[in-house]
């Protein structure tokens, strides 16, 4: 069978039961996408299929022979990182790193969804989705991070989306004379 992943052609003879995730991890040496639950519950396997984010453990590889698939390896590489990859490093948007490829692919897909005006559960005006911390958190909640880098993940995405720094909610040590 034939697949297009990260702009490259791959031939693979695989089982009909093989998930898109296992195709990459077990057959194509693309182990950047992670298996955390194999049930679409954690998001560690998130890839972009024709630009949309997908839990690759929940879809069979044979269904994707005509699709453009992008995994974390295709977004950017060491020395040539995608802006979100770079922002995750600087904002410490990870710890153990296992959910990270999925978080980053998910964030790429998510920002595109907002750009297209797709609403989420927390969108006030269904015709005018606008990025906010609440929108980011809601839309990124399909990607679990047990290390809980969530505040840093939100900060990294904010930066790439051009939202600037968050408003401080606390008094600084200097302000209280400490």
């Amino acid at each position: 069978m034939h697949f297009t992943i990260n702009g490259r052609s791959y031939e693979a003879d695989i089982d009909v039961r093989t998930s898109l995730l296992d195709l990459c991890r077990e057959h194509l040496e693309l182990t950047g996408s992670k298996k955390g639950c194999d049930h679409g519950q954690c998001g560690a396997c998130t890839m972009l299929v024709n630009g949309r984010r997908v839990n690759s453990c929940l879809t069979l590889a044979v269904m994707h022979q005509d699709d453009e698939i992008v995994t974390i390896e295709g977004l950017g590489q060491v020395g040539n990182l995608h802006p979100l990859q770079d922002a995750f490093v600087r904002h410490d948007g990870y710890q153990c790193g296992y959910c990270t490829p999925g978080q980053i692919c998910s964030a790429v897909g998510m920002l595109d969804e907002v750009k297209k005006g797709w609403p989420s559960h927390v969108t006030g005006d269904l015709h005018d989705a606008e990025l906010s911390d609440a929108e980011i958190s809601e839309r990124m909640s399909g990607n679990i991070c047990r290390c809980a880098a969530y505040p840093n993940i939100v900060d990294a995405i904010r930066e790439v989306a051009g939202m600037g720094d968050r408003d401080p909610v606390l008094k600084t040590a200097a302000e209280i004379g400490a």
Binding site: I72, E73, G76, Q77, F88, V89, G97
Partner: peptide
């Protein structure tokens, strides 16, 4: 400072 292994983790090339 940023984690020294950070670029490997965000690019999916850290080996678990």
């Amino acid at each position: 400072i940023d984690r020294v292994e950070g670029p490997l983790k965000v690019s999916g090339t850290a080996t678990y």
